[in-house]
Write a protein that binds this DNA or RNA. Structure first.
Lengths: 225, 225
DNA sequence: ACCTGAAGTTCACGCTGTCAACATATTTTC
DNA sequence: GAAAATATGTTGACAGCGTGAACTTCAGGT
């Protein structure tokens, strides 16, 4: 409840107000989604007057955009975390595909575990202007997906000229899956939900890779279901 | 501007206020999305006091849900319209796949052409309670997708036990594609956008169908890109 | 020491969703 | 058919919201 910046500051000037506001916005968004980011409440939590925010943001959408940026960073972290769990098998084809699969799993996982932030990341009011270098670590969701695809190409599983449509299918499927699980399918039992995720990711692989999804020992495709 | 129900009614009682309110809500949502559905404005357009709405809806989310229901109906219409354009080729495999493809195209098309309503249909505040028979005509989006999948099964293109994962991949991919085109890819030129849609739908087919996407004369899969 | 500009506050406005109490029309009941 | 009951629409009020304008406090350069 009492965030790190909630204690009454001693000086008239805060020192790092902009960051504190975004941080409070992130907390609000984490449980409650983008609509929970209400300017007056954010200011209240930081212990500052509502209009103080206007020294650092044009308006509420501008604040939301800043929060959305943080959310994207966290999404990228979740994707990267999932890939870092992988142990190389030596078979580059298998490893490449597993990496892309893990990226997708991290995406959906984040959407389910931190759905407030996830929804904020793609909120309409958060159209990022020119902020290209979205993440300093170089692990924005887009980059992680691109990395996975390039590795597939390097492994000879994906023709280089198919990268664009592949990117679209992969992102679409995983994004849509996340939103459907949060929306129309939100009361699906966890067990079945996990199965759905696995099955869908496998089918994405079938759509992506002309030669099918690579397997551990053999190169054959397996049955999913 | 002046809708059919905008003229000042002569009697104290409106007669069909609930419908009029929903209608006005649909217009608001059509340009402006779910957040444009503001209770006071809806009442204003119908020419009624704000609180009159509370005789027909529990609260604003309840109204939004009613609007979302209409939006789903329109989405279904768009999907059906696309399939009704198809001319049968005689080859059941080709026809079945084309139907499912058309359903998907209608979905994305609606999202792009009527994005306000589309977003309203899946708004968080519009969790439909038990309203199962969502559409009287029997053409809800879910049903249309199911029909397409069953036809694939009947044509021998899809194993019956794969229906569930297939539904999930198809819906996810198309839903995600629509949202990405409305969001991160919103400034994509129309020409490239259409190509993206086609390519993605084809790749969905590759993910769905073990034997590949059926073609007009031959049964071989073609190259997409 | 003064000035200047950045950062935060106060006051005010119009807008929103919603509650409580009231008014009017329609339907039911005897 | 009048009266009672119920459905439907209105008025007034309230707190909360985003935001603009004017004011205050502080830090830094000269």
């Amino acid at each position: 409840m009492t965030s790190a910046t909630a204690r009454p500051r001693r000086s008239y000037h805060h020192g790092d107000l902009r960051n504190a506001l975004v941080e409070a916005g992130v907390e609000l968004a984490r449980d409650g989604g983008p609509d929970a980011i209400v300017l007056r409440e954010v200011a209240r939590r930081v212990g500052v007057s509502p209009n103080a925010a206007y020294r650092h943001f044009d308006d509420l959408p501008d604040l939301i955009q800043a929060v959305a940026h943080r959310a994207l960073v966290e999404l990228g972290r979740s994707m990267k975390r999932e890939t870092s769990r992988l142990r190389p098998t030596g078979d580059e084809a298998v490893d490449a595909w597993r990496q892309l699969r893990a990226v997708g799993r991290g995406y959906v996982e984040f959407a389910l575990n931190d759905c407030g932030l996830f929804r904020t990341a793609f909120d309409r009011r958060a159209r990022q202007g020119r902020e290209e270098g979205s993440v300093e670590d170089g692990c924005s969701p887009q980059e992680l997906l691109a990395d996975g695809l390039h590795r597939l190409v390097a492994a000879g599983l994906l023709p280089a000229e198919d990268i664009e449509p592949a990117r679209m299918l992969a992102w679409s499927a995983v994004h849509g899956l996340a939103l459907l699980l949060l929306g129309p399918y939100s009361d699906l039992p966890t067990r079945e939900r996990d199965g759905m995720i696995d099955a869908t990711l496998d089918q994405v692989g079938k759509g992506l890779l002309p030669s099918g999804v690579p397997q551990r020992r053999t190169g054959r495709t397996r049955k999913v279901g």
